[in-house]
């Protein structure tokens, strides 16, 4: 494929692209919903992060890897992923202000209040939006981007 500017040639067919364009935002939104309501209903950081990662992967399958790498470069993924873990660690470290590692230094949770439950929602966000979603997507991307040249090394050794 030499026509790099013509993005219509990349990825899947027009039908898939159109459907994806409609649904990818909804899937992303649903993932964010699950993350943010993780402390009052079933779900949480990992489940929500997984759904967010699936939306990225769907986007990538439909439009091709160049399109998504234009939006999130590979380097950015690994940086943001590390930042997610560090953010989680900082939340845990701030617990030392209350005397213990992982101590809940915010006010305790109230039933049926979205903005409550101490550090749990923040940890969920740090884990889901950065760590799990980008981590999973990064794994997928790395497996896709592996330069694939079978038998090359074998022949070299036999010579």
């Amino acid at each position: 494929m030499k026509a790099k500017n013509n993005s219509d040639n990349k990825g899947m067919s027009l039908i898939v692209k159109t459907v994806t364009r409609i649904f990818v935002g909804l899937i992303l939104l649903y993932g964010i919903y699950i993350v943010l309501h993780g402390h009052v209903s079933p779900g949480g950081g990992f489940a929500g992060g997984f759904i967010i990662a699936l939306s990225y992967i769907l986007f990538m399958l439909a439009f091709g890897k160049e399109e998504i790498l234009k939006r999130i470069p590979e380097r950015m993924i690994s940086i943001l992923e590390s930042l997610g873990v560090i953010m989680f660690l900082v939340i845990a470290l701030l617990g030392f202000s209350g005397g213990y590692f992982f101590y809940n230094w915010l006010p305790k949770g109230m039933p049926f209040k979205l903005l409550s439950a101490g550090t749990i929602p923040i940890s969920n966000v740090a884990l889901a939006l950065l760590e799990v979603s980008l981590g999973l997507f990064g794994i997928f991307l790395v497996l896709v981007l592996l330069k694939f040249a079978p038998k090359k090394d074998l022949e070299k050794d036999e010579e």
Binding site: I79, L83, V85, I86, L89
Partner: peptide, 14 residues
Amino acid sequence: ILPLGAAFLLSLSG
């Protein structure tokens, strides 16, 4: 805390 925090700080340095 120390090894895990340091590990992710190092992975930031690329």
